[in-house]
Deep mutational scan, measured.
Amino acid sequence: TEEYTYTDKEKADRAAKEWANRGYTVTVTQDGPTYRVRVG
């Protein structure tokens, strides 16, 4: 499991979509002003 942190919702959504397109399980959680994209 890897985790990426973004401050921009659009970038987080785009990253999540790209990982999902590659067949990974993706979870996006909002943590205050940041968005965490957990992959795998």
Rank of each mutant, 00 (worst) to 15 (best):
E3M: 08
V28Y: 04
R14N: 11
Q30R: 10
R36T: 14
G32Q: 01
K17I: 11
E18T: 07
V39P: 03
T34K: 08
A15Q: 06
E3I: 12
V37Q: 00
G40N: 13
N21P: 00
V28Q: 05
Y6W: 04
V28A: 02
T25S: 10
V26F: 02
T25K: 11
K9T: 04
Y6M: 02
A12H: 00
G32T: 02
E3K: 04
G40W: 15
G23H: 03
E18M: 12
Y6F: 14
R14A: 14
A12N: 00
Y6D: 01
T27M: 09
P33M: 11
K9F: 12
A12T: 03
K9P: 10
Y24K: 04
D13Y: 15
G32H: 03
Y35P: 00
K17N: 10
W19G: 01
V37E: 00
T34H: 12
G32S: 02
A20T: 11
V26S: 03
R14Y: 10
A12K: 01
Y4M: 05
K11T: 14
A12S: 04
A20I: 13
P33N: 14
T5S: 08
A12L: 03
Y4G: 03
K11S: 15
V37S: 00
T5Y: 13
E3D: 08
V26E: 00
E18G: 06
E2L: 15
V37T: 01
R14V: 11
W19S: 01
E10H: 10
D13F: 15
K9M: 07
G32V: 01
T5N: 07
N21K: 13
D31M: 08
Y4N: 03
A20Y: 08
R38P: 01
R38N: 12
Y4P: 02
T29M: 10
E3F: 09
G32E: 02
E18R: 08
D13T: 10
R22V: 05
T25L: 11
T5Q: 08
G32P: 07
A20F: 09
V37F: 04
V37G: 00
Y24E: 02
E10L: 09
G23F: 03
T27L: 08
V39F: 04
Y24M: 05
T7F: 13
K9N: 04
Y6V: 02
T29K: 06
V37L: 09
D31N: 08
G23P: 00
V39L: 06
G32N: 02
Q30H: 09
T25I: 12
E10Y: 09
G40V: 15
N21Q: 13
T1E: 12
E2Q: 15
A16I: 06
T5H: 09
Y4T: 04
E10T: 09
P33W: 08
W19M: 05
V37P: 00
W19T: 01
Y24T: 02
W19K: 02
D8M: 05
T29Q: 08
R36Q: 07
D13E: 14
E18D: 10
W19I: 03
Y24I: 04
V39I: 09
K17Y: 10
G40A: 14
R14W: 11
T5I: 14
V28S: 03
T1Q: 11
W19A: 04
A20K: 11
T1Y: 15
G23Y: 02
D8A: 05
W19Y: 06
G32W: 03
R38Y: 13
T27H: 09
G40Q: 15
A15I: 08
E10G: 09
R38D: 06
D13I: 14
A12Q: 01
E18Y: 15
A16N: 02
T1F: 15
Y24S: 02
A16P: 00
A20V: 11
Y6C: 03
A15D: 07
T25H: 12
Y6A: 01
V28F: 05
T29Y: 14
Y24D: 01
D31G: 03
T7W: 13
R36N: 07
P33A: 12
A12D: 00
R36I: 15
Y24L: 05
T34I: 15
Y35L: 03
K9S: 07
A20S: 10
T5W: 13
T25A: 10
E10V: 10
E10S: 10
K17G: 07
T7E: 11
R36L: 13
P33K: 11
T5G: 05
G40S: 15
E2V: 15
T34D: 07
A16E: 04
V28N: 02
K9L: 07
K11E: 15
V28G: 01
G32M: 02
R22A: 10
P33Y: 10
D8P: 01
R14P: 01
A16D: 01
A20G: 07
D13M: 15
N21V: 09
T27V: 11
A16S: 05
N21T: 09
Y35G: 00
D8I: 06
A15R: 04
E2R: 15
A15T: 06
R14T: 11
K17V: 10
D13C: 12
D31Q: 08
V26L: 02
Y35C: 03
Y4S: 03
V28D: 00
D8Q: 06
T7R: 09
E3Q: 06
N21A: 14
V28L: 07
G23A: 02
G40P: 04
V28R: 03
V39D: 00
E3S: 06
D13H: 12
Y35A: 01
R38S: 14
T29P: 00
D31F: 07
T1K: 07
A16H: 03
K9R: 12
R22D: 05
T1I: 14
A15N: 04
